[in-house]
Design a protein around this nucleic acid. Structure first.
Lengths: 130, 130
DNA sequence: CTACCTGCAAAAGGTTTGCATAGCC
DNA sequence: GGCTATGCAAACCTTTTGCAGGTAG
């Protein structure tokens, strides 16, 4: 993997995502970079983010509308998405009452690769306004 | 909602899905109906299946490749998808160690609409062949 | 120099939509 | 007859891909 200017900038975004617990779609990354004065091609973002997912630096999950979201928190956890304001938050498995018994499947010969838990609804702000 | 020939046929598919625990994408429904001698437009399948989801007769979830899958089992449960053969199976929350503490979020003012749990990996058959 | 990256434009794949026609009720 | 549903084609959106040119090592 070569050190290109684009990759450097993208790694900066990933770092920001990690520090600020942000959940970005490719489009979000693109717009954010644009706002910072960088013009990086969408394909480049797609390629790099997907590469970083494979490398385990990022986690990718799919919303109910089918679009992909990237998360720099790669520790196993769940997500909440507000259907009104679009906000996405991390939820810990423990707090949500999830204690995955992987053995249940593994003892039957299954090989698990990834687990995705998505909770959708209204966040408290949006629910109040209803 | 009117009783059309197409709707009747589609309800038949949903009944079959329920009895045989099938998980169909729109394309699957289309091909199945074709194999049975029916030629129903894809749009019609999309519109009807989405209507039935809203009515609570079907459940819809999204795979990691972004495509939608319909399930006639609307009882809260998780799904396993084999990344090699594509097979989809139901998993009970209980067996998987999931005991959703909805109150955790509800007590904070959230209003939950749906919870989607997707486990992906290799089923035992495919894992053996690896 | 060579392999890998990027930008661009086009393609792909799934899903939705506008419109005219058909068919329940 | 009026209103809903369907078929068809086109539009949409996100994501992927082929290719030509650019750049790091």
């Amino acid at each position: 993997m070569k050190n290109t200017k684009q990759r450097e900038v993208i790694l900066g975004v990933i770092d920001k995502m990690k520090r600020e617990k942000l959940h970005y779609k490719v489009e979000d990354v693109y717009l954010y970079l644009k706002s910072q004065g960088y013009s990086i091609n969408l394909s480049t973002i797609y390629r790099n983010f997907n590469d970083f997912v494979e490398k385990g630096l990022l986690l990718k999950f799919i919303l109910s509308d089918g679009t992909a979201v990237f998360d720099a928190n790669v520790f196993e956890h769940a997500h909440f998405k507000c259907l009104k304001c679009g906000k996405i938050e991390d939820l810990s498995f423990k707090n949500m009452g999830i204690n995955f018994k992987k053995e249940t499947l593994e003892s039957k010969g299954y090989n698990l690769k990834n687990i995705s838990v998505l909770v959708e609804g209204l966040c408290s702000d949006c629910f109040k306004k209803n």
